[in-house]
Write a protein that binds this DNA or RNA. Structure first.
Lengths: 221, 221
DNA sequence: TAGATTGTTAATCGATTAACAATC
DNA sequence: TAGATTGTTAATCGATTAACAATC
């Protein structure tokens, strides 16, 4: 019953709110380091360039209750955000494609804090196979399917060239992967609607930037 | 007057729409390669997993008019999207921080199509300075400021470690950069409100994915 | 002509913001 | 007590979706 309630609650939380939660988390880590036990949404908003009411609404989803005049308990908020995002229970992941983007992601500090443990990387390049990248082993692409099955990996990170993205995704899904984080500039699909697929699209992000630049240039004329 | 109208128009376009424009663009390139002169929003929607009315609304911002029963002219749409996003007039850019993420971005196919020309990269590492990465020269970080001034660079890409992000951004802004695309996991700010700063936050993206996984796990229980 | 598809106006949905009583 | 800050309910704003006449 509790679980059902939580499920309902999770479903309702908007993506913009979810995207802000790690920003609060990162900020709260800093506050905790400064040994401040409490923080008000007024302060958070001012430091992060947001409005207090938005912070209050966002933090509402964590279930942590603040004290009027005092604010929210920093450690409680941190724990609640981690719990909400599922960062407390570790997700084992594999990464396919040990190119430069793959390297960069393997070396991204903080993923371990975020409940993502990249167990291994897979590539076709003989020069990379058998080596370690940021402490993670690189294995032959052929062995990925059995590795995923054996270690019950649930998350796959795709950093292969676009033309191989679907093919590699299919292998991941066949092996039992539950979620794919796709960095290849290609749309991948799955017959299985329970597989979570999230696309990271650099072109979309750049479009936001370039349209701002463009609007700006028009203004200046 | 025309300019003013366009300015008003640009201002109104929502970020979700802007983020979808490159997706249409990429799709339309494929359609053009198949030598189809026209495409309907019904077809686009079906292929991209969207609804027709949304595609119609999005494409409205390009100013291209479709023909009932026929659809939109593919080449006209491509040109209009490129124009809207400012991809037709090239933005010269520099990249600071030739680590793996920097490497990956320097090698990202398609940026040239998107009106982004990364002219040079800058780094502190003597092993990298003087070399070429994906055909782009790597210069000493010390020379970045003068390079930006001399070549009138307007876009800066930040792929330095978080602790140096603000420092490097300050140099870029001082040298006259108009827009910063920040990949470092750090918030950077500028006193100058005309400087466009866009943050790329991997943690936010991962939060969306992990909250989906988490909701899913709760459902399965 | 018939019917698919467009452009436009209106309705719905959801996120943000405002207002304000409760409270520490 | 006074006042800052919370939690909650209502209002606003904006994006998506629906409806439908116009049209090729």
């Amino acid at each position: 019953m509790d679980n059902e309630n939580f499920q309902e609650k999770s479903k309702e939380v908007s993506e913009p709110t979810i995207r802000r939660l790690p920003v609060y988390h990162h900020y709260l880590l800093k506050i905790r380091n400064e040994n401040a036990p409490f923080i008000s949404c007024t302060q958070i908003a001012s430091d992060l360039g947001l409005v207090p009411i938005q912070v209050r609404k966002d933090l509402e989803v964590t279930g942590v209750e603040g004290k009027p005049k005092v604010g929210y308990e920093v450690t409680a908020l941190l724990a609640a955000i981690e719990k909400f995002l599922g960062w407390s229970n570790v997700n084992a992941a594999v990464l396919a494609g040990a190119g430069h983007l793959g390297y960069a992601i393997l070396g991204y500090q903080g993923f371990c804090d975020y409940g993502l443990n990249i167990a291994a990387a897979f590539d076709n390049d003989f020069l990379k196979i058998g080596k370690f990248i940021h402490g993670k082993p690189v294995y032959s692409a052929d062995s990925m399917e059995s590795y995923i099955k054996e270690h019950k990996i649930e998350v796959g990170i795709l950093t292969v060239p676009a033309q191989y993205a679907q093919e590699v995704a299919d292998i991941m899904i066949k092996a039992g992967i539950k979620a794919i984080w796709n960095f290849a500039p290609a749309k991948i699909t799955s017959d299985n609607p329970t597989v979570i697929i999230q696309h990271e699209n650099l072109a979309s992000s750049f479009a936001v930037l370039s349209s701002k630049i463009n609007t700006d240039k028009i203004k200046r004329n």
